[in-house]
Design a protein around this nucleic acid. Sequence first.
RNA 1: GGUCGAUUAGCUCAGUUGGUUUAGAGCGUUGCAUUGACAUUGCAGAGGUCACUGGUUCGAAUCCAGUAUCGACCACCA
Length: 896
Amino acid sequence: MSAKQTYDSHQVEKKWYAHWMDKDYFRSVPDEREPYTIVIPPPNVTGVLHMGHMLNATVQDILIRKARLNGKNACWVPGTDHASIATEAKVVQKLRAEGIKKSDIGREEFLKHAFAWKEEYGGIILKQLQLLGASCDWSRTRFTMEPSLYAAVIKVFVRLYRKDKLYRGLRMTNWDPVAQTVLSNEEVIHTDENSNLYHVRYRVEGTDDTYLTVATSRPETIMGDTALAVNPDDPRYHHLQGRKVIVPLVHRIVPIITDEYVDQDFGTGALKITPAHDPNDYALGEKYGLEVIDTINADGTMNELAQIAVGLDRFEARIEVIKRLKESGDLVKIEQYRAKIGRSERTNAVVEPRLTLQWFMKMDESAATALAAVEHGEIRFHPQSMSNMYGSWLREENVRDWCISRQLWWGQRIPAWYHGEEVYVAETAGQALEEARTHHPGLQLSDLQQDEDVLDTWFSSWLWPMSVFDGFGEDKTELAYYYPTNDLVTGWDIMFFWVARMIMAGYEFSEELLGKDFVDEHGRQPFTDVYFTGMVRDEKRRKMSKSLGNSPDALALLDKYGADGVRYGMLSSAAAGNDIVFDAPIHDGEVLNESQLCEQGRKFCNKIFNANRLLQTFELTDVAPEPAAALATRWLESKLSATITEVDRMMEEYRLSEAMVTLYRFIWSDFCSWYLEAIKPADGKISRETQEAAISAFERTMILLHPFMPFITEEVWHQLRPREAGDDCIVSQWPQPGPVDQQGLRDFTLLQDAVAGIRDIRNQRGISHGEALRLVVRRSAQTEQVLGADAGAVSFLQKAGVLVSVDLVDAAPDNGLPFLFGNDTAYLILSEEVDLEAERAKTEEELARLRGFLRGIEKKLGNERFVSNAPDEVVALERKKKADAEAKIASLEKML
RNA sequence: GGUCGAUUAGCUCAGUUGGUUUAGAGCGUUGCAUUGACAUUGCAGAGGUCACUGGUUCGAAUCCAGUAUCGACCACCA
């Protein structure tokens, strides 16, 4: 026999992934089979694999491989997202390092650089997914900025505009001064931060020493103040109503207005109004017709209108303004304060409320439709509780129009052309011109100005389930076959960004694209089920992120534990929607801590690998199977069937990690610890029939485990027996459960318990596992049935318990050590003296426990209402429990 | 401020319409054995009044109410 061996993941993974690709197993084309479709949540084109992607991809791969084994036409569409802000920021940074300014080279040139960047780094993440084993149809790889998907976005914009769902308007928006673009509300992250509340006094006009003091967190905006406000019911300020005050530093005279909005209990009960730099102030400004003085530039510096601190950044300006207020004596006090600060999701810059002209999509109708789709069950969420979060977002009062324009170049340019104040929206400049000419016949292309802005990245991602099948193109064959897709797997953090909007797009466009008959039959929803993965957190429960540097290097993990090991480790603690706490902080590719979860996965691979090796070492004979092996084989078949049923059910309910753990236990405990030990021959010779049964069971087990751990299962599949070309685990058939012999399972459990009892005695008395003992069992209906009916039972007991003999007797032997065998007693015959007192104490302890148990049952059965109200089978069960307990007690009493 | 969720062994978590032997797994821990499939593995042990208090029920970890603690999401209080 060869020396000890350990499973080596590296070479196996490389070999089989190449083989699968070579055989085109991941490829899907429409055919007569039922489709099963997943579209990947497209990662950022320049991103690198992190833990979130790995968890997400593992779940999708499990679902897609399971569907493939079930004979469906499994199609997993991969791709990447152009991620306009993130990618543009990276390209800008790279150019800056080369001494190039974005504004100097212009749009065309910049886009060339951006595409070059995409060519260089784009798709790295997809390559990394392959290392994990992801069985995507790579021939379908799509990119949100490729021509056909770009065209889809433009078409959709035009359609929505024609449907009067889009409008352009001057609004108070979230401005990112670093990226210098507007953001949607969802892209602003609000967190509590320490800040100060500055109390500043404004002198009342026409007085020398009457002041109105306001509290503000943003003193640098006072140069833009155009009013102060108090609550009309506030008695402190009744005498000031209708008066005017002088803004410090800039000496502007502004009115004191009254409005219910002002909270008397906050700060001083007086509020400064800066309509240009605060959404609420803007609303009040509109209400009272106040002047808007915009004092901040797009890059966050102060402009000339500020008069003070011109050219300084807003935060430097704050320091300067405070200094001057101190000098003028107008700063009354500074209070510590904890405030919500909004930051840009992408650049982390503090968001500046800013009045800008943007495109918006009306959301009221779409939101209502999308909400109904989940409420009515056309789309199911897993876990179901996630629909609460979804509901709270889409409820009418929380929905706001979607700001879809961005002041960037990397993205789909808005197809709107302007002629002065007029707007022409069309798919091409030519069409826009044509339309413009209906009003102005002599117009030339050069008279029209295309909108400089691009569309929000999510305005292309929301079409993903349709656009990847060219749903907006001429040929609808693919869309009609694959749509609606089946499962969407994503993190709940993009439920609003992405999931909700895809649902909206599905209901908005599917009928136009596929026709009413089609959607009436198949549905309008983009997917039928959404599986929300949890966030991957580090051992301190912080969300893993690049900025914290707490995310392990995914590639180092794969290298260390193998793809199967990592998949096992990630999934084993990942019930749907639950955050998973990952335990392996790795920095710069070096593993600092062991990941116990992945290590367990690695060991599991090793166990499977060696189980196969054992099977291969047996020497075959043509004799009939040993009785013990025959019994164990029948038991294993029942057990396997039960396991298949259980795994099927768990998969249907999206309880993937439980399904995997079930298989882990089946393989490790049932197959390896009990079954292989039972059939393992002493002389190395095994019946051909037993060997075949073992291999057959093991290969079906490999299929069951394949979705979870594809590489090791494929490898073992091929080592188990010679295979024809094309007979691969990945394309085999999911096994069907056979009959389950419940009585047989129960009887076998009894034998296992007896073996445990024997081992326990050996352990406690220090009897070597190798020393064969004699076992004597008291004869009863139960023991006769278990031991007498099948020659295998005795021989199994002998083998597993290491016994020279097993005898059924009517009277207790006088030198035996008794233990419970089912409801009866068995005696292990020892050569040495038995410490009767110690045994007696143990037996009495057990007796006391059983009596307590029996009392509980008797109480229950003595309860008239229980007997009359509980279902018959429950009562029958309790009676059985009672009888069993009584039999056991009798046995124990006899022992004493 | 509003809404939702969580609280089960030292740790991470299961527990699926309330009822199969007075709660399960993995890891960790303790003891013993082993290195002849398994840089290990096997066997066994300890460890939980299922957050707390009431209620519904023949029966509650499971349903209801309240309390406590934690967390998440949403919200324009300067």
